[in-house]
């Protein structure tokens, strides 16, 4: 095969690839099923417009706006609860976060400090911290922020090391799981509200 032949073959191959790219894409079976459902839904859903929902009361909108302004002024935008969809009282949320923190601390202590004792040993200072936080400020968001800061300090002191990078996610996951349990064991579990 000469150099010219190789050039010609390479050019043919390029042309074939280009032609291949022009082929009509055939949808897969799943896509076809989805398409059928979409068509059926589209044929039905317009009919729902016969039943308009009531509009929101303008007075309520005004109250919400005023409430937001107050909340923004109070600076409550610093911390948000992790995941979970249930409405839980601040005390319950703090308790669940503390329980999650205790579990994480217990696991870490067990892993890194063999003679450090059980999870129960870690509860006493945690309880004190929680009580302090609850007394200091009833604002939930600020309380959680303080609690988490305090827990990080306690953990750093106990372990004598920097916080593991995965701590936040473990903490959040455990908090969410406990929230879910507290919301009951219904089958229709909430989906995460964690901002993406």
């Amino acid at each position: 095969m000469t150099l010219d032949d190789r050039d010609i073959l390479a050019e043919i191959e390029q042309n074939e690839q280009w032609l291949h790219g022009l082929e009509t894409r055939v949808p897969g079976v799943a896509s076809l099923e989805h398409l059928k459902l979409l068509v059926r839904i589209a044929a039905q859903e317009h009919w729902l417009k016969r039943y308009p929902a009531p509009d929101v009361d303008p007075a309520l909108v005004d109250r919400i706006k005023r409430g937001i302004r107050r909340e923004v002024r109070r600076g409550a935008v610093s911390t948000a609860p992790a995941g979970g969809g249930g409405k839980t009282s601040p005390a319950a949320r703090i308790a669940s976060l503390a329980a999650a923190a205790a579990i994480v601390l217990g696991v870490l202590i067990g892993l890194y400090v063999p003679d450090a004792g059980s999870v129960a040993d870690a509860r006493s200072p945690l309880d004190d911290l929680i009580a302090t936080v609850e007394d200091r400020d009833s604002d939930y968001a600020q309380s959680v922020a303080l609690l988490r800061d305090a827990l990080e300090e306690v953990e750093a002191a106990l372990l004598g090391s920097t916080l593991d990078a995965s701590y936040d996610s473990e903490f959040d996951d455990l908090g969410s799981e406990i929230d879910d349990l507290m919301n009951g064991l219904d089958s229709d579990q909430d989906v995460s509200e964690q901002p993406a």
Binding site: I64, G67, I68, E71, V72, A76, V77, S78, T79, A80, P81, A141, E193, Q194, P195
Partner: peptide, 10 residues
Amino acid sequence: FVRVVRMLPR
């Protein structure tokens, strides 16, 4: 909207 105010920063 309470939740939005609290969580929007994230």
